[in-house]
């Protein structure tokens, strides 16, 4: 599917989605409560068929926390980038996509571990890289650790 048709299709499913400028991928900013609806449509609909989640990234933009999803279809060869953002730095929370793409399991655990973003419905949300008793979320921009991080 070419990018114009894909844009129309996504805007039809989620009219609130905002398209962002990006040279490489078709990029959309999605309201967090619409994430589940959109990803389910993208995965399940035969003409979209986004079966491969190749990257899931947690990002701290300074004031906002969020997640970036990179999706592609192995049969139809089209890709899309989805972003969700939230201002809530105390208890950020998004819906999980592990029920659609199992590869999200480890990715989401990593984002929880390093950014402290919860994923509702994740089967086993534990820290993955750091120890269980680690305090704080090191990849956040406001994280300070006088012992383990040496400022040069």
């Amino acid at each position: 599917m070419d990018s114009e048709k894909l844009t129309d299709k996504i805007l039809e499913i989620v009219p609130e989605a905002q398209q962002e400028e990006n040279k490489q991928f078709l990029t959309f900013l999605i309201p967090p409560d619409k994430l589940k609806t959109l990803t389910t449509h993208l995965k399940e609909e035969k003409e979209l068929d986004f079966d491969y989640l190749f990257c899931l990234t947690g990002v701290d933009w300074g004031t906002e926390l969020g997640v970036v999803y990179h999706l592609t279809s192995t049969s139809l060869n089209h890709s899309v980038e989805l972003k969700v953002k939230t201002d809530n730095r105390e208890t950020p929370e998004f819906d999980t996509v592990t029920d659609l793409w199992m590869t999200a399991d480890f990715f989401e655990r990593e984002v929880w571990d390093l950014f402290g973003i919860r994923f509702t419905g994740h089967p086993d949300l534990r820290r993955i890289l750091l120890e269980e008793d680690w305090v704080g979320y090191p990849m956040r921009k406001d994280y300070t650790d006088e012992v383990n991080i040496v400022e040069l």
């Binding site: 190749f54 990257c55 990234t57 990002v59 590869t103 399991d105």
Partner: peptide, 29 residues
Amino acid sequence: ELGIYCISDGNKNPVRMKFRTPSFVNLGV
């Protein structure tokens, strides 16, 4: 597949650099 996702704000170092490493993903299966 080794993927690098990079966000830049125009400075000499990136805002975010994510490495999608193949072993990390393959371990999941």
